[in-house]
Every structure is written in C-alpha cells, then in structure tokens.
Design a protein around this nucleic acid. Sequence first.
RNA 1: GCGGAUGUGGCGGAAUUGGUAGACGCGCCAGAUUUAGGUUCUGGUGUCUUAUGGCGUGGGAGUUCGAGUCUCCCCAUCCGCACCA
Length: 860
Amino acid sequence: MARYNPAAAEPKWQKAWAEKDCFAAGRHSERPKYYVLEMFPYPSGKIHIGHVRNYAMGDVIARFKRARGFDVLHPMGWDAFGLPAENAAMQTGGHPKDWTYGNIEVMREQLKRMGLAIDWTREFATCDPEYYVHQQRLFLEFLKKDFVERRESLVNWDPVEMTVLANEQVVDGKGWRSGAPVERKSMSTWFFKITDRAEDLLDALDDGRLQGWPAHVKEMQRNWIGRSEGLMMSFPLSGDDLPQDKLPIYTTRPDTLYGASFLGVAPDHPLAKHFADQDPDCAAFIAECQAQGTSEADIEKAEKKGYRLPVTGRHPFTDEELPVYIANFILMQYGTGAIFACPAHDQRDLDFARKYDLNVIPVVCPPDADPSSFEVADEAYVGPGSMMMSGFLDGLPAEEALPAAIKKIEEMGWGEGTTNYRLRDWGLSRQRYWGCPIPIIHCDTCGAVPVPDDQLPVSLPPIDASEFKTPGNPLDRESTKSWREVPCPKCGDMARRETDTMDTFVDSSWYFARFASQPEAAPVEKAEADAWMPVQQYIGGIEHAILHLLYARYFTRNLKDCGYTDVSEPFTNLFTQGMVTHATFKDAEGNWLFPEQVDVKGKQAFAVDGGAEVAVGPIEKMSKSKKNVVAPEAIADAYGADAARFFMLSDSPPERDVEWTDAGVEGAWRFANRVYETVAKGEGVLNAKTPMPTELSDDLMALRRTTHKTIEGVTGDIEHFRFNKAIARLYEFLGACKNLKTDGDAAPVAAEALGALTQLTAPFMPHLAEECWGLLGGEGLCTDADWPEVDEALLSEDVVTLPVQVNGKRRGEIKVAPDAAEDAVKEAALSQADVARFMEGKTVRKVIVVPGRIVNVVAG
RNA sequence: GCGGAUGUGGCGGAAUUGGUAGACGCGCCAGAUUUAGGUUCUGGUGUCUUAUGGCGUGGGAGUUCGAGUCUCCCCAUCCGCACCA
C-alpha cells in the first residue's frame, strides 16, 4: 500500500483550498463571526520555527471555529517598518524598501507552504503607502482631538540607533534593541498623551473587561502603569535669589509629615540646576550623580549621597525650617522630582539622614511598642501603627491619619490629594528613514501645520541606496532637500517638512482594525470593523506584554473616540505562547555549530565532518548567533508541514517553552503515517453511507463510545488551548482504531470512527486530513465539513469499574452499573476477593461510596 | 527588595469538584520483520523487593475515610519590575 506522501499531497490541497477561496472571511453573513489573530511577523528574512508554532496555534483555532459554524477572520500581514531594514541596507548597500519587500516575498511563500487557513486577500504591509496614509490621517485626527502634542522635553537618546526611544523601549537604562546606554537629551518631539488614559487602561485590567488575559500579563501592565494615591503639595522656600518660591513634592505618606526632617530634589531638578550655575561644587555633584549607573548592581551599591543647598522649606504644621538637599536617589521622572523625607519610615531617607546626621523622628508607633520609648535605629519602620509626635494626628491609626493629613493640607491651600502614575506619555518621534512620515510641516510663522488631507500620503521620498551607508536619518540631508522644503499649507511661505517618522509600535497599534475593514478613503469603515472587532483570540509572544499590548489598547480607545469603532479593548482573549528551544553545540575551538553539523549519540555528540567530539550546551531559545536553529523548510521537505505543525503543538502545553528535537518530529511523522494506514483500511466507508444498526456487538459499541468520548475531549481541549492533550487523545484514539473492522455491521461504526479521526486531526494536520477524507469517500473538502457532533448517550458506560480502597489503599476493583444503588456497591466491594483478604481480622467501620469514582472501606 | 509563577519517572508532560498518580509522546529494554543498520510492527518500562508486599508528586507539619490537588512553614528554580517617594 502506498504511504502518505506529503510532498505531493500538501501542494495539491493548498491549491484546492485556494481555488475554492475556503478561507475568505465575510462570506457567510448568517454565521456568527470569529476573529482570530496571531501577532503579525516582522519580515526579517525567513520564517523561523517559532513562527510555525505561533501560526499553527492560530490555525488550529481558525479551522476549528470554521468547522464549528463560524465565519472566521484569520488574516496575515507584515510589521514592515523598522530599523533592521536600515541596518541591512547599511551593510549590504541595498535599499530598506527592497530588502523588506524581498523578505516579504520569501516569507509569504514559506507561510503558504505551512497550509495556514488564512484570508490572503486582506494581506498588507505597514510600509505600504495604502496603509500608512491612514495612519497619517489618524495622527492628524488625534492632533485635532488633543490626543497628541508636540513638546520640548528630555528624551531617551539611543546613540547607536541615533534615535529617540520611548520609556517602554529603555531596559535597564539601555536601548531595547541596541543595548547601548541611553543618553538624556532635550528635544522637541511628538507625544501620544497615553497618561490621560492611564486610569481607564488600569481599570479595565481589573473590572472584567480583560478576563481572557493571562493574569501575569495584566500584572505586568498594572505595575507599568503604576498607580499610587497620595498628596501633591508645595513647601514655601526661603533663600536668596531663588528661581521659585515654592517646592512642589509628591508623597504617598502624608501621614508621616510630622516626621519630616529634610526636603530633597533630583539631580536634574530645575532648583538643582539653578544652584549648579553659580556653584561649581554643586555642578560637580550633579555630574557625579548623572554618571551613576541605573542597572540593578549599580543601584545596590550606590550609596545615598546628597548636596546641601542654601535654601530651606517651611513645614506646614510646625513652621520648622527644613534643609533642602540634592539627593542622588530621587528621580526627576517620577512625581515632581522632589520629596519630603521622613527617615523614620523610609529606608532611603533613613540611610541619607544617618549619613548627614539629620533628625530621625518616629511618628508611627508599631502596635506592640510603647510610644514613649519607640525609636528607629538602622531599619525604617514601614508597618502599620498609630501616630505619635504628630500634633493633631496623635493616636490615630496611620491609615486614618493619611486622609486626615491630606484634608488638612487641602484646607490650608498647600496642596491636594492626587492619583499619580508611573506611566509617562508615549514619545513617538523617531529620527529614522524607514517609518511612517509624520504629516506635519514646520513654518516659522504658523508653527507645526498639519499636511492637508488632499496632500496625503506624505510618502517616503525615493532615496539612493548609497545614502544608507552614512548613519543617521537621510531625510535630514541634502539629497532630500526638495522633499523637505515645501510651502506652508497655511501662509504659503517656504517651510520645512517634519523629517521624523513614527515609532513602529504605532503601525502595530491598529493593524488588527485594518484587517477587519479596508476602505480606500478611511482607516476603517465602522460597521464592518465592529462586525469583526474585537479580536476574539489574540496569540503572540510574552515579550509584547507591555509595549505592543499597552499601545494597542491605548490606540483603540483613541479610535473609538474618533468614531471608528465601538470597541475600547481590542483583544478579548490573549494567549501568550512559549518559545521554541533547542540544544546548543560548540566545537573544541568554542565555535557554535548548527544542529545539522552534529551527530548526537546518547549524551555525547560528534561533528558530522571529521567526527571530533562536540560539547553539548544548555537548551536555549533558538537564536541565529548560537546557531541552535532548525529551518522550517528543511523540516517540511523531510516530514511535511503537517508533521512540523503537529509536533510544535504536541509535547508541551502551548504557553510553555518547547524543545525542538528530531525524535519529536519523527514521532509526529509516524503518527501521520499510522493515521493514513488506518484510514486506508476503511476506504470508501463514508461514501457507502450505511445506516447505523440499532443493535451492535459489545466491541462495536465500545468503539462508538470511544469515538464520541474522543470527539468531546478533543473539542474541549482545543477550546481551552490544551493542544498537547488533544493530541494525546488522538494518539489514544488511533490506538483504539487499530484493529477495526469495516464489513457488515462494522462498516457504519468504522465510518463514524475514521471520519471522526480524520476530522479531529484536521486542525492540526489539515493536508493529511484532506487526503484521508478523500480515501474515506467524504463529501467535498474535509476543511468544509461540519465538526462532528457528540452523541451524549454514548458518553456513559453500561458498566463502570470502581477501584476499592481499604483504609485509603487500593486493594481491588469491582464492576457495577453506573447507577447501582449504594448498598449494592458496598456489598460488591466487601465481597470482592482481594478486598475481603485485606479485611481479615478487621471490622468495617465505614464504607464511603463516591458514585462512579471510588469505594473506600474504613476498617480497623 | 517587591510582585507573579513553577516544582510529578531517564526526558517533555497527564491527572473534572480532593477520589485508581504517571495518560500520551520521547528515550530505553526485549521480540518480530529486514542481508545488516535504519525504517516499521508487537510487548515491557516510577522505585525497592522473595511478594498477592512496601515506598513514592521539592522538604516538613496539618485537615480528611482519602491530598499531586486544600492550609501553614521551609527550600529551589524561572519570569517581570526595581532608589517609584
């Protein structure tokens, strides 16, 4: 008998699906809609195995939902702007555009080879002017609605990428992509005012709107937004020639105001700068602080240091004059960049106070301590307690003193209770070529003027490839002068086009909406967008837990306010899949080796070329630099796309990392062949359409039961993203079909079983399933067939086997009817031979019967 | 330091509400097929043991007829955030 031949079958069925337009969305208006989306890929060159895992998951859902009667939208596109294209251009002498579109061509073909159920008619790349023209429209609408503004501010400058980064893109003080230490620079750039939506972005995490999100992703966003309740207040300052007469501070502990012993400002606070201009020592101190690293280790060993300024602040309650210091542990970016310090109840303040010999006044007395003698030594007390040495607050529990202190400060007119967020506005300007141009013209008279709608898109000017050999933004150079110098749309005088482009995270903040609806004249058409949105299942990597997912949530709210959708949360259910890992190999010289250069024998490994021993390193995320990668095409050539897809979902739960092994994919390959061979025994059984007899032998009934239990199990598993369990069930079911007969009464039973086996396998191995469907004589395409129905009556057994325990240990088993009376079960259990043997010399104290589960005899 | 998770055979991992621990796959062992290797197929495979026995879910206690699952304490690993006032 012929074996299954994926090399022939896979292209054949891909062609058949394409010819029938099977996966075009929106063709079944009568069906409920379902939108499943995987995070679209960056066209970096080739598809890697991690993509295969990601898209295989989405594809299982798409095919499953389709078979379950949904009109499914499952699109694909390209997150195509970005710096790697410019870097590649710099290295190869090419153009970012050619590099990007070339990669897209390659990767599209690779993806198509995977046999994904994708509506390719909706494909686009974010670098297509037909896409980014709408992004420019949105930007200008946001500008009108005051969602975006231009401001001069300190920005994070990445000296390697030569561009500004958003706070989210700075990791440990370094650029997220380049790894270079980020510099602080003052520049005039555009900001999305995401902080205006901080509260709603946070509330949605907790009020059930994001129930389908993993808790840890929500937690990460919660921490990132970083809400705190506190008091914003100003201390009046005294001193000579001050730039400000008050110092605004933010605190979450206004209850400890009586414990204040000094005020502090950040090294880059305006007040500090003011004194630095006239005092070289002060300037030197600030320079020293700025040289201080921000990595974990740096912070750990960084000593608390300060510089006393010739100024004092007056305490609101005591009128005492508090000294003002520049302190190296205060951050300009948080709150107001200034604090009041209460050393007794804050460790940093305490360290500082001890060093500079400042007062330590305990004002919160721990519950078990005596207020007349309580003191703080080297450890600040941060626990609960009642107020002491605190005037009108004395005796109150700290949690009551807090609002009381705020109320008092508000009455005095010195400040007010506020909510503060760690989240800061999203700087979107990038000084790069390969991005969406910001549609603004700068005029000396009129300022920043929006490009009129009839002049959109502002397209990227054609640039000679040689320009990319020079680092920096070519849009800013001589060669693009004619593009850059244009008349002001308002006054007609010569003006300059904005040369910054948008952060590429803007591109991915609304692409999902554009997939749903793609009119020519607007970003989306509302009714059509809302028919699909929100994305009901979004799938992607955990690395986007904050950046992309937070930005997309924010952007969708803007879209809603602009009337493009009724949706404010774009992704109802989020699934974050694990990575694909692989062992690493190094030769004697310490060079990394590709897996195909290594012959693994047990725990040892040898070079294919020469046979020298190779060191087997840890199993790590696949990366080009460590060469622990496998090419999806090579796998598809050897085993077929189905086997690759199947293996990626079979071993580990999808949220966990999975290790790629050749043995694993071979197992998937074996499975495919065994399914094919098993199905081949029932050639034509579906076509015969033999009616199911009313009476069946025990064997055949058992197979029917197994079939329906498997349908039920696999259905539930897919719905709950338990792909590894669904696959385990398929293996079991295959085993149950091994010796099946196909003649006489057995024919309809075999048709049911093999039909189900084929259909349940289809979301995972769609090409194999079509081939099997054809063999069985199924009608049309397996892809178009309705998902098999469960016959509830077949889920229960006539006889169940119950384990019987004696004193909690399993001693035997009995067979009873599932609805047998408790007394009958007890009697059967006690009379069972093995059980009886263990009961010798003991008396029964109690018999616990859990119907359908277990019997436990308590004896002594 | 703060927050979140995880811990089960040689390995990846299964185990509804607390109810037969180790499904399924990989690996390994034995056998069959094959000239041989590979492939394929069949059977076995937690551990100790003379066993129709004992022990077993990171460690320790507890609740319960019964705990991988619940409670408390401890240990380890991973992830995220981090001088956030």
